[in-house]
Design a binder for these strands. Structure first.
Lengths: 148, 148
DNA sequence: CAGTATCCCTCAAGATACTG
DNA sequence: CAGTATCTTGAGGGATACTG
């Protein structure tokens, strides 16, 4: 049923977490949610994922208590997906993924977030991921990259 | 080639990290590596994964610079897989996975690691994952669970 | 717009047999 | 023991058409 093998019987908390959010899309949905994305088509456009897959992932994340469905804030008839408390608790995980990726998978663009941290004076943990990504650094500090 | 879509062209560091270690087994291999597992058959027994899959994952983790192959330390003719610096940098990620899983996926067994932390006086980040898991608490504090 | 329903295809993953 | 080779299967995922 899940994208991953059912490990809910497994006692290791790491395995259980991987079981819930360790697939190709779930964590990216969560990342987008931290960036303020709330609507189906916005997730879809941001991720480029097939609609049926997105539908499935959103439903699972709701079932897992990570996202919740709300009536739309702007008055439209449609619903929105927002992070629950439990979903927000994934923030350190997303930060850890981001930092590792930045440090080890970007040869030339290392230390971007550290530079952001230094310039803004804010610890990274208090910044939204996209706020970090989109923070512009002057070209002589590092290339400003365009993000998905 | 990877279990995940090739996102190495993607600029988001989270997506790239997910691309490298966001599959069903890689992170669990890394978790075991933090626990001191080094040999093929030990990974295999610990994870219950098929041999060909394990072989593939180990190769990918080596290719990604997360694991390195060493001659066996005990004099046997076989090699061992050990974490590189880059692999060790995944520790915060594993900790984040563990903590989230503990807090949100174990209804009755919450706060185990917090109790360990309190009793040992050591911050969790300085303890090996398995050391946390296996730390025994007296039954009146919490059930000691057996881990995979 | 926000999904659902179908179809199809690839690939991850398991099982098993085999090899140095 | 530490893998590799081969086969099969089932799930993940994409494309597209359809619906309220």
């Amino acid at each position: 049923m899940n994208s991953l093998k059912n490990m809910s019987a497994q006692p290791c908390p790491v395995a259980r977490s991987v079981d819930v959010i360790g697939d190709r899309w779930s964590l990216l949905v969560v990342r987008d949610a931290f960036d303020g994305v709330r609507r189906f088509s916005d997730f879809q456009r941001s991720l480029g994922v097939a609609r049926n897959i997105l539908s499935d992932r959103l439903r699972r994340l709701v079932d897992a208590g990570i996202l919740a469905i709300q009536p739309a804030s702007n008055g439209s008839a449609y619903q929105e997906y927002v992070l629950t408390k439990q979903g927000e608790a994934l923030f350190p995980l997303v930060v850890a993924l981001r930092q590792w990726g930045e440090r080890h998978l970007f040869a030339e663009d290392e230390l971007h977030s550290e530079l952001v941290e230094k310039r803004t004076g804010k610890p990274l943990h208090f910044m939204a991921p996209r706020a970090i990504d989109n923070h512009e650094l002057s070209p002589d500090e590092t290339e400003v990259r365009k993000l998905s």
